[in-house]
Computed example of a mutant assay.
Amino acid sequence: MENREQFWSEVLVFCQKTTEAIAETLMEKAGNVSPTSKEDGSLVTESDRWADKTIREAIAEQFPDHGILTEETSHIFPEQDWCWIVDPIDGTTNFTRGVPIWAISLGLTYRGTPVFGFVYLPPLKQSFYGYWYGETGLSGPTGAYRDGQPITTSDDTPSKSHLFNLCARSIKILQKPFPCKIRMIGVASYNLLLVASGVAVGGVEATPKVWDIAAVWVIVQAAGGTFIFLKDPRLFPLTIGTDYGSKSIPSLVVNQERFVLLLKPLVECIL
């Protein structure tokens, strides 16, 4: 890559402009659409499909050599070195019912490993992004950001005065005493981004798909958090030719690695 700094700047600006443009139309539709059920029981609307198509077209125009994996169309991980993983509306149930928390999520992978994540929440007018290169050999900007300002996870020890986020399919956890106050957001990306930004000390998603977590996997780690795949610890790098459409990826996010031993045993009942 001849100009790495220019490339990362182009990626960020592309995500900002694309999600903001799509958000204008989606905000007009929120709470005024009729969903249908997909085979896995999740909801989908014409707005999901429109946003998916619009993002795919924008990527194809700006980055014609990049692959694309999205929730509403292609679930097969492609052979290109660079691939975008897209969730056009994360939190479709919230979106259809007029609950003002839902997101547009874009993750960029290099040879199967997410290295950049961008999540925009139109109702809140908040954007999160981050860079995490791991063992890819890439370099460039670092850190995690909310609205352009650096964010980090909390250093606090989990307690009854701290928040831990659940998803709707993880309430089995509450059958036993839990050390924190529980919140349920209804949006996988924002659930975990609240840990990245220091609001919550942990969060769990029982059945997310790769498009739910690709972007936030980057942002959480860039912010200093720990991201744990409860069933498949070696998920990344993704495998070329694999269909990720039906693959659930139970995930735990913790604010500090030293608290994994405290929280992980409490959430493993969701498996």
Rank of each mutant, 00 (worst) to 15 (best):
K53L: 13
L174M: 12
Y244R: 01
T142M: 09
F7N: 04
L238M: 10
P237Q: 06
S74Y: 10
E257K: 14
V115S: 03
G91W: 02
T226Y: 09
T226P: 06
C15A: 08
N165D: 15
V254I: 06
Q6H: 13
D40H: 11
T136D: 11
A30S: 11
S189L: 05
T153H: 00
T152S: 15
R49F: 09
Y244H: 02
P100Q: 04
E135F: 13
R56T: 02
S170N: 07
K38R: 09
D65N: 15
H66G: 13
A30N: 05
A196N: 11
Q149E: 15
K176R: 10
P114I: 03
F259Q: 06
G241A: 05
D212W: 06
T242S: 11
P208S: 05
E257S: 14
L271C: 12
L266K: 12
F77M: 13
L166Y: 09
I173K: 04
N32Q: 07
T113K: 10
I89V: 07
I213D: 02
G117I: 02
I171C: 15
L192T: 13
E135Y: 14
S37N: 14
D212H: 08
S34M: 12
Y190G: 08
D52I: 01
A21P: 03
P237A: 08
S161N: 15
W82H: 09
E268S: 11
K264G: 01
L163C: 14
L43T: 10
P141V: 04
L138H: 07
F178K: 06
V11G: 07
S159M: 05
M27E: 13
L252I: 04
F7Q: 02
L262P: 07
I68V: 13
D48T: 03
P35W: 01
V218Y: 00
L124H: 09
F259M: 03
K125I: 10
I182F: 01
T36G: 12
W82Y: 11
A200I: 07
I76S: 05
Q175A: 15
I22L: 09
Y129R: 14
K17S: 06
C269N: 12
E57H: 01
A103F: 08
V119K: 01
F178T: 07
V86K: 01
Q16A: 13
S197K: 13
F128T: 08
K231T: 12
K264L: 08
T96Y: 12
S47F: 02
L163Y: 15
I219Y: 00
R234P: 12
L193R: 12
K247V: 13
V218M: 06
W211I: 08
Q16F: 12
P64V: 02
Q80T: 11
F116C: 04
I219M: 03
P208N: 07
V187N: 00
L235N: 10
E24G: 05
I182L: 01
I89L: 06
P237F: 08
